[in-house]
Amino acid sequence: MTRFDSLLDSLGRTPLVGLPRLSPSASVRLWAKLEDRNPTGSIKDRPAFFMVERAEAEGRLTPGCTVLEPTSGNTGISLAMVCKLKGYSLICVMPENTSVERRQLLEMYGAEIRLSPAAGGSNEAVAVAKKLAADNPDWVMLYQYGNPANADSHYETTGPELLADLPEITHFVGGLGTTGTLMGVGRYLRERVPGVRIIAAEPRYGELVYGLRNLDEGFVPELYDPSMLDARFSVGPEDAVRRTRELVEQEGLFVGISTGAILHAALAQAEKAVRANERADIAFVVADGGWKYLSTGAYSGTLDEAAERLEGQLWA
């Protein structure tokens, strides 16, 4: 059934597509979960919808409320759509070093943007949002970093979809930001697939983003439970851009830069399986399409030029 009563009803049930050219062999296969096929074009539609619905069910969100959220972009865009359709105002606190397309989309949906300083990246956005929430007790901060409904959205939808489409799954590779995807899918798969490996790919930004004033300003999302992961990889912009381009050139998939980082970690698992002479069916997340990142310059020029242009930007 591909007919839905409204856009929100069409959430999820995204395709899982094989990558015959990038997969090393018939027994070590890569599968891409196309999360760009969600209502606003990213995986964040799932947690945004679930967080709003749960806040409504709990009575925290009532008609006319203002929603507040720290976000580097995709969660804000998803919330902006959900809030627009449900009649809430939205204020997003976003680092200033995010792509112009993200800001344009938020403005188009009618969200108000408060920019936080580039240095410190999303840590600063979280700090600014927490202060705003304290100063404005009538605003409702959904707080994706600590809201169980974020991980639950993946436990209840992304995880079951993956297992239904790929019962033979051996690895799941996702991006690590709020940790919601990995915590939710990880919990679902571990309960049902003995030995499944849950692998995190974390973007490694330029120095500006790690420009905290002291180490105590560091941030670990409240949702994060490291026991849910088997390995965690840091992927720099060179590798992320290279893999992003390989996906276009070899498989025809036009994806955002963070997906390149995720594929990089997935390919490392594939190579490991080949070396160990083991069967592997590795599913990874295509978090969004490349459209919102064209202005970053990541899709033109040499790899070195593209990586250089990403310096200082929050590209995932």
């Binding site: 969660t75 999303s122 970093y145 490694r204 999302p221």
Partner: peptide, 10 residues
């Protein structure tokens, strides 16, 4: 060996 402070994503 790369040392980094923990930062938020999302």
């Amino acid at each position: 060996v790369t040392i980094l402070p923990a930062v938020a994503g999302g």
